[in-house]
């Protein structure tokens, strides 16, 4: 069987190598991807169109904001699907599993985490808010924020973390994040533009059309951050306890 599955791997590998003989030169200015009007437009006009210095953020959250909205939806779906599969519908018996231990949380670990978590969370806000000018944004900020709650669950137990972040809030915040993103898009549509045309928000906020895009991007990044935070924690809570939300690892 192992040998059999080696054959398709080999075929795909040979195909990929064969394709490489026709590649444009590495980093060449004549490569189609560098020459195309689309990339030239991004490089020359991102600042003009959106006032955002970080080109990657502008492409992600504005030029191709529709993709990013659905990426957020994908994260949301992942959380909902895992919950749907594992949700305890009263059938499963509550039995203790062998890897669950009754030991008290470790003193050194909990005290270190006590110091770490606030720093991680402030850094998460920084990464989220500075996505415009430096590497970062909603996904990265959300992952950091979610990780801080998982850290609490790992060093105490899941129940302690669930006191700080009740489980129902993961679904609400996850949905709210998608709602915030799509809602900003819908609002700009009601103001007369296309869906997700943030520049129309200049009609209700006293800023230029470019700055409206700038600020709306922060708005959608916050939406992304909310969803990613909530779903990260929801996935951990579900997977570590098979959907029972008790004790955990």
């Amino acid at each position: 069987m192992k040998l059999l599955s080696f054959i398709p791997v080999l075929v795909v590998g040979v195909l990929l190598l064969y394709a490489a003989k026709d590649f444009p030169e590495w980093g060449s200015l004549d490569a189609p991807a560098s020459k195309s009007p689309v990339s030239s437009h991004f490089i020359a006009n991102t600042g003009v169109d959106t006032e955002v210095p970080n080109m990657v953020t502008a492409v992600l959250a504005d030029y191709r904001g529709f993709d990013t909205m659905f990426e957020t939806v994908v994260v949301f779906i992942a959380g909902m699907a895992v919950l749907a599969i594992l949700k305890n519908s009263g059938r499963k018996k509550l039995v203790k599993r062998e890897f669950e231990v009754d030991a008290e949380p470790d003193l050194i670990v909990t005290n270190t985490v006590r110091l770490l978590v606030p720093v991680i969370q402030i850094f998460a806000f920084y990464v989220l808010a500075h996505g415009h000018v430096s590497p970062g944004g909603g996904f990265q900020g959300g992952v950091l924020m979610g990780a801080s709650f998982i850290l609490v669950a790992l060093s105490w137990d899941l129940e302690t973390a669930l006191i700080r972040f009740p489980f129902n809030w993961t679904t609400i915040l996850g949905g709210l994040g998608v709602f915030l993103y799509a809602g900003i898009g819908l609002l700009s549509m009601f103001l007369g533009g296309e869906f997700l045309d943030y520049s129309e928000l200049a009609n209700i906020f006293t800023v230029s059309r470019e700055m409206a895009r700038y600020h709306a991007m922060l708005g959608v990044e916050i939406g992304v951050g909310l969803t990613v935070t909530a779903i990260m924690f929801s996935l951990y809570a579900n997977l570590s306890t098979e959907g029972r939300h008790q004790r955990g690892l």
């Binding site: 195309s36 009007p37 689309v38 437009h41 991004f42 504005d62 030029y63 904001g65 529709f66 898009g185 533009g193 296309e194 869906f195 997700l196 045309d197 943030y198 520049s199 129309e200």
Partner: peptide, 13 residues
């Protein structure tokens, strides 16, 4: 989506 119309921007932006 996003108001990047074909009149003002290259296709694919």
């Amino acid at each position: 989506f996003g108001g990047w119309t074909l009149d003002n921007y290259p296709r694919g932006v």
